[in-house]
């Protein structure tokens, strides 16, 4: 479905030094430097897969996404999406894909969303019967109801996102690119969006590519993740494996029937949290069995669970490592 080989994307940027004097100098002489936003990436994505692009800000995720959608031309490399070369943006290609940007909207601001739906029907040349069917389905799944009749500007952010998704799916794209789709939404709306996107993938078999900083999005939607850092692909595989690789340790969550001394806990492993309700220990995978039996034997345990570390932490550790490497390189 998607095939990327040796993708490079370089930008020439104008250096803007701080300060008034420097700014004045830059009026007359400008300095440029080349930045490799994407620096040699290869991957394949099969039909119907759901893949998350992860990486710190400025890592090259969105650039890659835009190259795949045909908005940016690669500096070099080979990209094919659904048998098309995205950069040519042929109708046949455009009718098969859709890009949803959490921070930008395609809905017409001062008109009801129904007008945008109608516009997209015409633009994507969707047959009337199919349009009606799709719209009914979307209306039901997203519970659009009367939202579609109100001017977009009067909708809340969450309502707008639901309509945005509906507008994006009118032509039933086979490849859906989502860039930060849940940004700014409240928790229940995030869940709604995620469930809806997952269901769309299941029902239509569409391929899904997502970038997000929200790890709940990734955990719910993407069995496979591709981690991009400084333009390079640093990991491509299952999310579960990524987690064990970065943080091989487990968390033992304990609840006690009476209060326990912090010192007693520290004897078992690293204490992550210790308060009245519950205590969390961080222990290596190999030591889990021993720690659990010791805790059960020596402490008044009322409840015990073993968990993976939270995804947010895994990611921040991953990015912190790359940040540390960057600083080290800059210093040397």
């Amino acid at each position: 479905m998607i095939r990327v080989r040796g993708l490079h994307k370089h930008y020439k940027v104008h250096e803007r030094p701080p300060g008034l004097a420097a700014a004045l100098r830059s009026v007359f002489r400008r300095r440029y430097k080349t930045i490799a936003a994407v620096d040699g990436i290869d991957f394949d994505i099969a039909d119907g897969e759901r893949v998350g692009f992860l990486g710190p800000n400025g890592a090259g995720k969105t650039t890659t996404l835009k190259v795949l959608a045909g908005l940016l031309h690669p500096t070099s490399g080979e990209v094919s999406v659904d048998g098309h070369e995205p950069r040519r943006r042929q109708d046949a290609f455009l009718k098969r894909i859709m890009l949803v940007l959490g921070q930008k909207q395609q809905l017409l601001w001062d008109l009801p969303p129904s007008e945008t739906f109608e516009l997209n029907r015409a633009v994507y040349d969707v047959p009337r019967v199919q349009y009606k069917e799709t719209l009914d389905e979307l209306t039901q799944l997203l519970q659009l109801g009367e939202l579609v009749g109100k001017p977009t500007r009067t909708l809340s952010l969450g309502e707008r996102m639901k309509c945005e998704l509906a507008a994006a799916l009118i032509h039933r794209p086979k490849v859906l690119f989502l860039d930060e789709p849940t940004i700014g939404l409240d928790v229940s709306m995030q869940a709604t969006v995620r469930d809806f996107v997952a269901r769309y993938n299941e029902r239509s078999g569409a391929t899904l590519i997502l970038t997000s900083h929200n790890m709940d999005d990734v955990a719910r939607l993407c069995p496979r993740v591709i981690v991009i850092d400084r333009g390079k692909l640093v990991y491509d595989g299952t999310l579960a494996e990524l987690v064990t690789r970065i943080r091989p340790d487990k968390r033992v969550v304990l609840r006690f029937s009476r209060s326990v001394d912090a010192a007693d806990l520290a004897a078992l492993g690293k204490v992550v949290r210790h308060d009245a309700g519950e205590s969390v220990l961080q222990v290596s995978k190999e030591a889990v069995n021993a720690v659990v039996s010791r805790a059960l034997a020596h402490l008044p345990v009322s409840d015990l669970t073993v968990e993976n570390p939270p995804l947010e932490e895994v990611m921040s550790e991953l990015f912190a490592r790359s940040q540390a490497r960057r600083v080290a390189e800059a210093a040397s």
Partner: peptide, 15 residues
């Protein structure tokens, strides 16, 4: 004013 001046310097084509 200073911020505007800085901005203005960036856009020499505008000048």
């Amino acid at each position: 004013l200073r911020a505007s001046l800085l901005l203005a310097m960036q856009y020499r084509a505008d000048f």
